[in-house]
């Protein structure tokens, strides 16, 4: 990660921590609306790699605030949602690891039990897949100047993959947490409820699967590989 993006992320973490109780005020004041605005127009001059990084932090820390709407145009909201989802999933995984390494039953931490380890490995694979999808989508969007039409395959594939991870990730996160994860007080629901909401927002599974499937059908069997490797 570049030094500029590291700094951006540090700022985002500090501002979002404040915004968690204060609402959108600090985020607007910090100028996040200018993230994608070119430098010569007085903006930050960021790319989608920056947006992805910031929205992953937003997805983990302030999933209920309209940060994506502040930064990104309507046409790119599906792509933005993938980043939010990746961030929220990463937070659900971090909370789950922390919980099973701390919570003791039968005289040892839950994380010592193979059944729990295998579940969390499954969950981690899903989270890594969504993080990779978000990163690859960012690479494509930056390569085509943020033109959603030129990144149509990647937007569909990434949002669909993220949607499909939601069920596994939320189910395993809650399962390994036990009853404490089902309370309003504990932090887990702050990311799992948004994940459930985002699965249906800006295109659910069926919506993107049909769009992507029709696009691939037009490529044809051999053409799919040619199209994938030409992008």
């Amino acid at each position: 990660m570049s030094a500029a993006r590291e700094m951006l992320c540090d700022t985002a973490r500090a501002v979002f921590a404040e915004a968690a109780t204060a609402g959108m005020g600090p985020i607007a004041e910090a100028g996040f609306a200018l993230l994608l605005v070119p430098e010569d127009e007085g903006g930050f001059g960021g790319d989608w790699g920056d947006v992805n990084a910031v929205l992953q932090i937003a997805g983990a820390m302030v999933p209920d605030l309209p940060v994506a709407e502040l930064i990104v145009s309507e046409a790119l909201q599906p792509a933005a949602t993938v980043s939010l989802m990746a961030g929220a999933m990463g937070q659900a995984l971090a909370l789950s690891i922390e919980h099973v390494n701390t919570r003791q039953q039968f005289g040892r931490p839950l994380g010592k039990f193979q059944a729990v380890q295998q579940s969390l490995a499954v969950m981690a694979c899903e989270v890594r897949a969504v993080e990779a999808a978000a990163a690859a989508l960012a690479t494509r969007l930056d390569a085509v100047g943020l033109d959603p039409a030129a990144a149509d395959f990647e937007i569909a594939a990434a949002k669909l993959r993220a949607n499909r991870a939601v069920g596994v990730v939320t189910a395993i996160a809650h399962q390994v947490h036990g009853a404490i994860g089902f309370t309003r007080e504990y932090d887990l629901n702050r990311v799992t409820i948004p994940l459930m909401r985002w699965r249906g927002a800006h295109g659910n599974d069926a919506y993107w699967a049909l769009i992507l499937g029709r696009q691939v059908a037009e490529f044809g069997g051999e053409g799919l590989w040619e199209a994938l490797t030409a992008r």
Partner: peptide
């Protein structure tokens, strides 16, 4: 088409 879409998304990822 939906099945093809889901398989393609997984393969791309």
């Amino acid at each position: 088409a939906a099945l093809i879409g889901e398989l393609a998304a997984e393969m791309w990822t």
